[in-house]
């Protein structure tokens, strides 16, 4: 049941050609004034919801490009973002 990911250069390829780079979480926080609590939260804490998330992937076994795509951890497949309202 291997799934495929869409590389912007090579197209849909077997997931084992890629390296997972983690969630896209916006710019890294400024080091200055960062408390140790905030630092460890940024480096280690994650929220993995069972719904599509934007992620970084690297095409190691192909063109060598880093790119982002939306994938759903509940299904493992690429899927566009859901419209969610969280209050």
């Amino acid at each position: 049941m291997t799934f495929r990911l869409t590389c912007p250069v090579c197209g849909a390829r077997d997931v084992y050609e890629f390296r997972y780079g983690g969630q896209e979480r916006g710019p890294r926080p400024e080091q200055a004034q960062l408390s140790s609590d905030e630092h460890f939260r940024w480096t280690q804490f994650r929220m993995t919801r069972p719904e599509p998330q934007e992620e970084w992937w690297y095409h190691t076994g192909g063109c060598g490009v880093w790119f982002t795509t939306w994938r759903n951890p509940a299904t493992n497949r690429e899927e566009p973002p859901h419209e969610v309202e969280r209050g």
Binding site: M1, T2, V15, Y20, Q23, P50, E55, R71, A74, N76
Partner: peptide, 13 residues
């Protein structure tokens, strides 16, 4: 498998 997920997918790999 390296990517976070909640499936029980198996692979020939």
């Amino acid at each position: 498998d390296p990517q976070v997920n909640y499936t029980t997918d198996v692979t020939a790999h």
